[in-house]
Design a protein around this nucleic acid. Sequence first.
RNA 1: GCGGGUGUGGCGGAAUUGGUAGACGCGCCAGACUCAAAAUCUGGUUCUGGAAACAGAGUGUCGGUUCGACUCCGACCACCCGCACCA
Length: 919
Amino acid sequence: MARYTVRETEEKWQAVWAERGTFRATEDPGRPKYYVLEMFPYPSGRLHVGHIRNYAIGDVVARYKRACGFNVLHPMGWDAFGLPAENAAIANRTHPGAWTFENIRVMGEQLRLVGLSYDWDREIATCTPDYYRHEQKLFLDFLKAGLAYRKESWVNWDPEDHTVLANEQVIEGRGWRTGAPVERRQLTQWFLKITAYAEELVAAIETLDRWPDRVRLMQHNWIGRSTGASMRFALKHRNDGLDVFTTRPDTLSGASFCAVAADHPLARELATGRPEVQDFIDECRRLGTSEEAIQTAEKTGFDTGLVALHPFDGRELPVYIANFVLMDYGTGAIFGCPAHDQRDLDFARKYGLPVRPAHWPRGVTPLDPEGDPAHAEILARHRQAFADHGLVIVPDDTAEGGVRGYLHILDTAFLPRDVALSEEGLSAAGKTIVAAARAEDAQAYDLCGLVPTGTVLSIAAAKDTAIAALADRDRGEAKTTYRLRDWGVSRQRYWGCPIPVVHCPDCGVVPVPEADLPVTLPDDVSFDQPGNPLDRHPTWKHTVCPSCGGAAVRETDTFDTFVESAWYFLRFCSPHSDRPFDEAAAKYWMPVDQYIGGIEHAVLHLLYSRFFTRALQACGYDTVDEPFAALMTQGMVVHETYADPDGAWVYPEEVEEREAGPVRARDGAPVTRGRLEKMSKSKKNVVGLEKVVETYGADTARLLLLSDSPPERDLEWSDAGIEGAWRFVNRVYRQVTEPQASLPAMDAPVPDAIGAAAQDLRRRTHKTIAAVDGDLQGFHFNRAIARLRALSNAIGDFRPADAADAWVLREALEALVRLLCPITPHLCEELWQVLGYGDLLTTHPWPEADAALAADAAVTLGVQVNGKLRSTITVPVDADRALAQAVALAEAPVRRAIGDKTVRKVIVVPNRIVNIVVG
RNA sequence: GCGGGUGUGGCGGAAUUGGUAGACGCGCCAGACUCAAAAUCUGGUUCUGGAAACAGAGUGUCGGUUCGACUCCGACCACCCGCACCA
């Protein structure tokens, strides 16, 4: 029995593809294009099998689309700037560049092992001046367009990496790479004006209909659009006012205090000469921004003695400095409405401030709400503010029949629903309120007399009313704010793209002229002390001012590495262009038709890229606004983990199964099996790529990575799994190389008479073609593989008896090989040759199903009695109801189930089911 | 706290618009081939009872709609993820 010599075969076809330039992409306006891209890797060392899933998915898409006639662009490169290179340089006394290029070499070889259909002529590495000179040019464009600026601000400082981090790179108060608690520092930094596109970026999410909802939602939340009102409180005894943003202008009549952030200019002003104010501000700053600190910190405030005047009724409101008000959001100042905001309520309790309902149906209660004991009681009972959909309990003294009714409206968290919405014993007015409350977000308002007390309004209408009243008094207007902050791109590190500006003592910040680009990194740097080597370099930063020619220094900060990945997909369209990208090429290829990568970039990289394309348009580049038409986020590859008694991780290959449980082979120490974890070096559960490819071949690894789980879910890598995939690869190889009959020539005509069994196989073949095509279009690779296994099983069961059967067998084998080709391309290329073809299967057109041949002659229907399956019957396709009913009623188990009961109704759904209703 | 997702055999997962639940694979069991093993092939494998025929139960839980529900509706439970002092 001929064994499949997997390594030789794979190397052979890889060489053929490379030699013929099979995957080279060129613009061809005559053909539809398809740009498929996997998020390019950071060259961190070596790839393991877990890394390959992403690329395997992209490769199937690329190969499938290519076979379907698309002009496919499928490039690969290296996101090559970054801190690990510097850390490695410090640890190993090498140069970050040397380390990076060595990793690129190794990982490039690894990728080539897998037979991925990349156009390697387009390979880029972002750490080369060839790439980053264009990035510097783009930055100069941004600068000119006012999209890049420098300002002093509070920034996130990672004390371990000695650099600033963008907001997006702080996860739960810690640096995204180091996990070190982030510190606040005030520094002068370069920013890109992503907030200029906040509205566009949030609005266009809707157009990304081929992105996962999860990612769209995360971006939506990240941008954090809030609509409301911007308003100004007058300050008693002062000429200036206090600007406040609120999303709830409808609760303005319930305002009982104002508060400003510790960093607010007003607070700073008050601090001069008043040490007690300064002390409080210092205390707020000490608090930190970590999750624990925020959760445990009490809401504290400092009464400044200033008094704000309510815009509607002139009521006097104390102004506090409060530790929970953020300078970063809105205006850094708020008004507090304790009745409708939990945090404000906590604050009001602590400082004895009044709780005044804004939506309170006075038309129903005869009491003054401010002094209403019922209200106080309710607050005491629930210790909850009535948030927007919160509970309103209305004492209804006008109830009929002498029943003192309470309306429990809206929030069923506190009360059973039946109580909450009972109208029993209520007055007509009460019933109106309940009805209004049921209408989603309606509330009764008084709004400081702007509307008649007890007027029932939706919250939206009440907001509009309040905003209109503010505008009338020239006190405010509708306003939208965003949580999104501008993107801080300065990093105090060496291994990044130098920011192309010069600081001149006379001219200030001067951009490096385009003719002087690139500003290249110096090679002779030392990492023997912490901090930025560029800053310490003896000569590099000293230069002359491009403007006045005087002595000046270079900017020593480098760009955040997310800047490189924010436009690399454009560079791939024309990687050798002497401009950042060739607009005609980008016009042809962009947008990326299918982008594939991990969910971890849901906000960072994907948001930055969406901003970049828009910013480029603003700078006059002719390109798309949305870079990625479709996005697929693949799940992780997980693998078993083991730990020894001390809790240290143990490599699975060191573990031996004994009767008493798993032990470490070396010393027999018992080990515990841990959870399935994402493959990582630290958990010692990675599976090396080379070893797998050497033993089983790249095709087998690709097959496993694509079968079993849907691509967006996690996939377990296991020894049994790879063995199973290997079995299938060999089975297909044997089926084609040792067929059950001698196959006819490839151009033999369709035989005249085909037997019944062969007809079945033909039908199966054409059904499989149609189904696999649909599966690949929908990224259901696991389903496609299941169907192909089923076809292989059918081929294995088929016993050809004559020449016609052999012809049908050949047709089935060809279909199997062609359909499997995107998944296991080397094997299929080999088998295509075995089948007698001289061309490359990779460039051969995709098979088409013949619908007539795929159609069934007969169909098996389930027969139910009272909805319970009792039998199945086989009838001709589209058999009429009467026939199906007659056959069904003749079935013995059906008759038994009916027994002596009467048949009341027989439901026949043609080609689906028969249901006999008895009783 | 806010928002989102997922719950199907021993395991990964299949199931068009509501229409035979468990495709396909892994694992396991039995058998063939073999001196033996590996590989390969054949059959079985949701659970309970039964030798079998067959019967009953079954898609996180409870309820509803329907001739018929993994699928639709309501309430809940569990797990996972994102954001979080955002006014």
